[in-house]
Design a protein around this nucleic acid. Structure first.
Length: 548
RNA sequence: GAGCGCGUAGCUCAGCCGGUAGAGCAACUGACUUUUAAUCAGUAGGUCAUGGGUUCGAAUCCCAUCGCGCUCACCA
């Protein structure tokens, strides 16, 4: 999505951008305001944080996607004259406090509890030296599949390389100030043992949460008790890390981060991060607080609860772009993230895409697709909405794309999987969505005696038809069956021969018994596409009681 | 306790840089000449939570109140 690509900067666009109220522009303007009356630094740094104890998830995607949108808006506003960078920072020096559920051999990790994730062996085997390396690689692969433009950063490597040393020494100098900020934010129990410095034990390799006995700013050392041994350790070179709140502030100060967004759960703490950053002589980045995602019951989505939707699940049923749209829209509102929102997101995406070419620049800059595609949305013709496809799959009970395409091409000429590959993709998504969500809710009912006889007659009638019979022929054959049955005679209608017409109840019965739905497409067309032999097999199964 | 968000048609929501209320679904009516429908036309339904303010004009901006939800206060 966002990249170091060339972006469009025509004059009308630029003047519309200056006025735009779209949230990425609002955020980008905060960064410009930040440097008002001064020169921009060499590179404007956008950061997103990532905790590598789990796999990348939908929140990771949202944060990177949204940050990329702000970055792009900034590039447009500054006419791309200022270099920008998105740093995806992995806090892989964090101690492994518990063993994740997802690993294969949990007991093998037990000896490594509380060690930095980058020192924990990789439980998945393979090419990566540590657990953190593995998860970091998963993150990068994840981001790469979406085409994000970013630079990966490992906390462990930054600490060990000495990149944070100057700031760590300053933190020792200003230890009292940092403590003065931190202590009031803690409960009394934690206050007693709190330390912003977390030494890595030379003895056990663990990240220690121990009180400081002495902090020597001049020597750049800390002294603490390590399981009975009084230990003095240099705070530089990755021997000591900072506790997370000071870590945020220190990192911002050390790297000169200009923008970092985070979820509402960080909001209260952000003030603390900022103050630490200031104490260390840095300027806190611009923030943007986004709302958390909720499940269908309005509960916060969390990995541990396993509620809500995973990114893989979303992408099983819909194209990536629909998820990008979801991320663009109303980031400050808590939105429900569950399966029901997918069809709407998909259809809205294509609707926005279709509207784009005929919009003026002001409207375009308010159109999500402009932000999602770095100002260069693709031209895609989507003749059939996703909601309609779902309807159709459900009605036809389609098991594969061919059946569905049969219906589609009947109604829209010149549309084929070749001319409309996106639609073809969507057809596949619709079938999967149907299988997983609609199908389980279907309720088949058994046929009573009259219905049973009617279906048997229908079966025979179908059997008498030639193999290639068309929809019309099948429809007429089934009507002939129904006309003989008293229950389905409708005397308010007339058959071609002058007798009573066929009641709609006949077809309703067919769908209730055969497909488990109240309605369906014209039966003749359905049977023609579904196949006469297949339809007869379906009747057989229904009569054998295998459906209800 | 602190912070954030929400309260608009039966349901899900859009509209919110102010200018006579919208969509989808549901409901109802009718057309399509054997009603099974990815069709078309139409109807109905809202004191835009409440009270005040700014304004010629407020669902939209400001203040207050009520209701609902979430987050943080242990860890990251």
């Amino acid at each position: 999505m966002a990249g170091s690509n060339i972006i469009d900067l025509n004059p009308e666009l630029l003047s519309a951008a200056a006025e735009s109220k779209a949230w990425p522009f609002e955020e980008a303007k905060k960064i410009i305001e930040r440097y008002k009356g001064a020169d921009f630094p060499e590179t404007i740094l956008f950061e997103t944080g990532y905790g590598p104890s789990g796999l990348p998830h939908i929140g990771t995607f949202g944060e990177v996607a949204r940050t990329s949108m702000v970055r792009h808006a900034f590039r447009v506003l500054t006419q791309d004259k200022v270099a920008t960078k998105l740093l995806c920072f992995s806090d892989d020096m964090d101690g492994m406090r518990k063993i994740p559920d997802s690993v294969p051999d949990r007991s093998a990790l037990e000896p490594h509890l509380h060690k930095p994730l980058s020192s924990v062996p990789n439980p998945f085997g393979g090419d990566y030296a540590s657990f953190a390396d593995h998860n970091n690689a998963m993150l990068c692969r994840f981001l790469d599949t979406f085409g994000f433009d970013y630079e990966f950063a490992s906390a462990t490597r930054y600490y060990k390389s000495g990149r944070f040393d100057a700031m760590l020494l300053r933190a020792a100098e200003r230890y009292d100030q940092i403590m003065a900020v931190m202590l009031p934010t803690l409960g009394s129990e934690r206050q007693a043992t709190y330390s912003p410095f977390l030494p890595i034990s030379p003895k056990s390799g663990r990240v220690l949460y121990v009180p400081m006995k002495h902090v020597d700013a001049k020597a750049g050392t800390i002294t603490f008790d390590d399981e009975g041994t009084e230990t003095t350790l240099s705070i530089t070179g990755g021997r000591v890390k900072l506790q997370w709140k000071p870590d945020f502030g220190m990192r911002w100060a050390a790297l000169g981060v200009d923008f970092e967004m985070f979820g509402k759960d960080h909001q209260t703490n952000a003030v603390v991060y900022d103050r630490i950053c200031n104490i260390l002589g840095g300027r806190a980045p611009e923030h943007f607080v986004y709302e958390l995602f909720l499940d269908e019951n309005g509960q916060k989505i969390s990995k541990s609860k396993g509620n809500g939707l995973t990114i893989d699940e979303w992408l099983t049923y819909a194209p990536t772009e629909s998820l990008g749209l979801y991320m663009y829209q109303r980031p400050r509102q808590a939105k429900k993230l569950y399966f029901d929102v997918i069809p709407r997101a998909v259809d809205e995406y294509y609707a926005f895409l279709a509207a784009y070419p005929r919009q003026d620049w002001k409207e375009r800059l308010g159109n999500p697709v402009w932000h999602m595609h770095d100002g260069n949305p693709p031209a895609i013709d989507m003749p059939v909405p996703f909601s309609l496809l779902l309807n159709l799959v459900s009605a036809s009970n389609a098991q594969n794309k061919d059946v569905l395409w049969g219906f589609i091409s009947r109604h829209t000429q010149g549309v084929t999987p070749q001319t409309h590959p996106e639609l073809d993709q969507l057809v596949g998504h619709a079938i999967r969505y149907f299988d997983d969500f609609v199908k389980p809710t279907k309720t088949f009912r058994p046929a009573d005696d009259v219905e049973r006889a009617a279906l048997e007659d229908l079966d025979k009638a179908l059997g008498a038809l030639p193999a290639g019979a068309n929809g019309e022929a099948i429809q007429n054959a089934s009507l002939n069956v129904a006309r003989k049955i008293e229950r389905y005679q409708d005397h308010s209608k007339q058959s071609p021969e002058g007798g009573p017409g066929v009641s709609g109840a006949f077809f309703q019965m067919i769908y209730q018994v055969l497909i488990g739905q109240e309605r369906g497409p014209r039966f003749g067309s359905f049977a023609a596409l579904y196949g006469i032999a297949e339809t007869r097999a379906l009747i057989e199964r229904a009569l054998a009681g295998q459906l209800a």
